[in-house]
Write a protein that binds this DNA or RNA. Structure first.
Lengths: 192, 192
DNA sequence: TAGGATACAGACAGTCTGTATGTCAAATGA
DNA sequence: TCATTTGACATACAGACTGTCTGTATCCTA
């Protein structure tokens, strides 16, 4: 990669980083592109050269966050002894990652409305939700749980997504711990 | 109520009805106030006389939808013989109500981002989620289920909200039925 | 090294939201 | 009943914001 492409990639990363902070702090609608550009130290030309529109920039931010989450989830799940434990550990890592205000707001609260369900779901399927489906299927193949893996994965994903926002927004500092134990209890009751 | 107040209430309802259709069809961001006003057959003065801003109009639409849902959920739950069955029936009614594209998009996909978590959660708590918490608590008091009712209600709410969007958006027409049976199975596995 | 392509700057136009002012009808009170 | 006030809505306008368009400098390539 030549020096020009490197600089271009750097500005692209700067734009994403600046947008990530402001979207997390003020929300998508209340964040003007001018504020992002000022923070990144460049002008409109750069933004619309690298991204089709403001929504595409938001999508790029989401991709970065998803990729970060995927790493920690896989790491924690892979350390488990069996598929059922891997499923639980992966979900707990998901909660730890998603509970951060920045991630919560962008990926769970804003993304569905900004990107629309189809794009949001497609993106989630390529990352955390995809891991979850695979995890449930493996636990089912192992014989640890029964029922349709797809449906079960959907319900678990919903419970985790909503639960982590609930826990993160709660003023009770031990809400996340309660959610985790509640989730583990729920999974244990599903165990065959 | 005088004739003037009646007319005012009628225009307010017209604005909400027009906004409801357009928000459901095009989304909050892509729906201009001018389009809403044209559909309702009035001008900006009416809108900003009755509502503080566009967000307040959206909130009013959400209140109407929530109120409609609450009615059918309570009706179906009250017909059940015990608290555990009432909880399940209420949730199934919730799914039937929420699966409609209009409700899905406005209340689940857009509302969290538009209103913010606090306002969204506060509203949900006054309607469907409030019923759910009460239902879980009664089932726990009855001795049908164990665990912290609050945490359990949070996870169920998340599973239902996400699940119903999944089912509704799916091209598989029997996705909703799969979700329902999956949910009932899940609840049965929690039964003491 | 000449020519083209890429990355970005800066100005501009269209659109949208919210406000401020004006107007008319209904309510109120003497 | 009539004057006055209040509420409901219309209309024009200002500010802000997004996306586009043209210009320019730098890098790559033949």
């Amino acid at each position: 990669m030549g020096v020009k492409a490197q600089k271009a990639e750097a500005t692209r990363a700067m734009l994403i980083a600046a947008a990530r902070e402001l979207f997390a702090r003020d929300g998508y609608g209340a964040t003007g592109t001018e504020a992002i550009l000022a923070r990144a130290g460049m002008t409109r030309g750069a933004l619309y050269h690298h991204f089709a529109d403001k929504q595409a920039l938001f999508a790029a931010v989401c991709e970065v966050l998803h990729a970060e989450g995927e790493v920690v989830i896989e790491a924690q799940a892979d350390a488990a002894p069996d598929a059922f434990q891997a499923l639980i550990e992966g979900c707990l890592a998901f909660l730890d990652f998603m509970v951060r205000p920045e991630v919560r707001r962008i990926l769970i609260l804003e993304a569905p409305g900004v990107l629309g369900w189809d794009r949001w779901n497609e993106m989630d399927r390529r990352h955390g939700f995809g891991l979850l489906i695979a995890g449930v299927e493996e636990a089912a193949a192992e014989g640890s749980i029964a029922g349709d893996p797809q449906t079960l994965a959907v319900m678990i994903n919903g419970a985790l997504n909503y639960g982590v926002v609930w826990a993160g927004q709660s003023d009770d500092p031990k809400a996340l711990r309660q959610l985790k134990t509640g989730f583990v209890d729920l999974m244990e009751s599903l165990r065959l």
